[in-house]
Design a protein around this nucleic acid. Structure first.
Length: 500
RNA sequence: GGUACCGUGGCCGAGUGGCUAGGCAGAGGUCUGCAAAACCUCGUACAGCGGUUCGACUCCGCUCGGUACCUCCA
């Protein structure tokens, strides 16, 4: 079965066929670096990291472009027009670029924690002002934008009428033009626009605005949507394969991107497949500043938040994301996080156990053998079905008791053939590590001295146990546990340990 | 108000017209000096009411409830 992708544009699953055989161009809307990333940001970047990894696995040469929005956008139709980055820069007494750099670095750090692969290109909005101005000039020249008091607006009505046959306005987000005109809320500060559905391509900078660039229309800064159209076309071409982002960007952001690009590139639809990840909720509510339920990533990793009972490893969060399908909402709570943390550690331990066990097929259990083979062969099918990581994870979990059973002696080492065990090892490496991008959630005991000390303690405890001095042996075990080191008495009499 | 989507066992969460999702928690058991871990067994869930069907959690309609977008937002 070939890879099937749910395309928001057609509202159905479609077989994935790249424009150029063997190559894939993918653009994902990146973060606005005006503040710290939160749990909500984890979802799209993990989701599209999986897409990127899987496409690579399928043998495609993928160019993955993810932008950094550092130019600061207006609350376009907002009450008090204000630039998030400028305002914050004043508050924090930082240069805008200083602030943007700070949060960009923090974002990169968080992505690394999640083990997300770096994009092929990570263009910034401030680095592409020229491209954006050029694109706006093109749109103006084509007659689909007009200048008003130093700002430039996109003429949605005219576009909608002229491009209805190729890239109709509202198709992506399922909106009807007429409805929009009547249902859009009537907000202030729209007198510059000819129509309230119009959106800004370029905004004149008010006198005190810090970030500003010269343009044919005076000093100002780019509008909200133009950077993605400009940068995606620069690096991926007028038409590319996949455009990704959060569902909340579908309208108006992506709809506007389509309109801008379509005007510039003669009615071509900028991307073939539009993928949208669903939102993360906290106790049933979307995470957002207005809900006051934002959990920053630094707070998650440290556990320093009223909703959290402990620190969570980035892998626990990544795992929780992968246990659901990317197009479903994912409800987070401390309990859900706790469950994911525990579940993933168990799965990872069985992955480690898998490295240690052997099989020789001497007492072949045909049923078990076939069961394992089936579970392994289903893995690519699940991924081909619109990246169903939840099913991949479920299959891996079904293999865990088999692995642990062999290690623990409940299942004979001869029950599986060498070939099947070998395939299982390869599969875990491939799916769990390479495709799902999971990493060791335990603290690496790469400190030689620490390892030696624990070994000494284990030896002391072993002697105490031999003397039936359980008071001492239990004290060693319990005291180590309080500092995060867990001892495990293995079936074969050895003792293993792990550290949180 | 307009437009979508969703409502699955204590919690999270897949999915399908008839065949065990999975995880966490919980119960019992095996092992163990004890514990932990591991392994085995266990819940027969699919908002409500109608309809279609031999058969629906899965299709249709209605009702109730929830969420998202329409405004910066991952």
């Amino acid at each position: 079965m070939p890879l099937q992708v749910y395309n928001s544009y057609s509202r159905q699953k479609e077989v994935f066929t790249p424009i150029t055989e063997g190559y894939v161009g993918m653009y994902v809307c990146g973060p606005t670096v005006s503040g710290e990333s939160h749990l909500g940001h984890a979802r799209p970047y993990v989701t599209f990291d999986i897409v990127y990894r899987y496409l690579n696995h399928l043998g495609y040469k993928v160019r993955y472009v993810r932008n950094i929005t550092d130019a600061g956008h207006f609350e376009e139709e907002g009450r008090e027009a204000e630039d998030k980055i400028s305002k914050k820069a004043v508050l924090e007494k930082l240069e805008p670029m200083e602030l943007v750099t700070k949060y960009t670095n923090l974002f990169h750090w968080a992505m690394k924690q999640f083990n997300n692969t770096e994009p092929s290109i990570e263009p910034t909005a401030t680095g592409h002002i020229v491209e954006q101005i050029e694109m706006i000039k093109k749109i103006v020249a084509a007659g689909y934008a007009y200048e008003s008091k130093g700002s430039v607006y996109f003429d949605v009505k005219k576009y909608a009428a002229d491009f209805a046959g190729s890239t109709p306005y509202g198709k992506l987000s399922g909106r009807v033009m007429d409805d929009m005109l009547t249902t859009t809320r009537n907000l202030e500060g729209q007198d510059e626009k000819q129509d309230k559905a119009d959106f800004a391509l370029w905004k004149a900078a008010p006198p005190r605005h810090i970030m500003r660039w010269a343009s044919p229309w005076g000093e100002g800064f780019p509008g909200w949507h133009i950077e993605c159209s400009a940068m995606s076309s620069k690096y991926l071409g007028e038409e590319f394969d996949i455009h990704g982002g959060g569902m909340d960007l579908q309208f108006p952001h992506h709809e506007s991107e389509i309109a801008q690009s379509s005007v510039c590139f003669h009615g071509k639809l900028m991307a073939r497949y539009w993928m949208h990840n669903n939102m993360i909720t906290i106790n049933g509510k979307k995470m957002g500043k207005s809900y006051n339920n934002v959990i920053k990533l630094t707070e998650l990793f440290s556990g320093d938040h009223p909703l959290l009972s402990q620190a969570y490893h980035p892998m626990a969060i990544r795992f929780a994301i992968l246990q659901s399908h990317y197009r479903s909402t994912l409800d987070f709570s401390n309990d859900a996080l706790l469950a994911a943390d525990k579940a993933f550690k168990r799965l990872w331990e069985s992955y480690e156990n898998l490295q240690k066990i052997t099989a020789n097929g001497s007492q072949l259990d045909e049923v078990l053998e076939q069961r394992v083979q089936q579970l392994l062969h289903e893995l690519p099918e699940h991924m081909d079905d619109d990246f169903n990581t939840a099913k991949v994870v479920a299959n891996l979990f079904e293999l865990a008791p088999i692995i642990n059973g062999i290690k623990g002696g409940q299942i004979s080492a001869g029950a599986l053939s060498e070939e099947t065990l070998s395939l299982m090892k390869q599969s875990f490496d491939l799916w769990l590590v390479d495709v799902l991008g999971m990493q060791n959630p335990f603290v690496d005991a790469d400190n030689q001295a620490l390892g030696s000390v624990v070994d000494i303690l284990i030896d002391v405890r072993r002697k105490a146990k031999a003397d039936k001095n359980y008071k001492l042996s239990d004290a060693i075990r319990n005291d180590l546990l309080t500092i995060g080191i867990t001892l495990k008495d293995e079936k074969d009499g050895t003792v293993s340990w792990s550290m949180n």
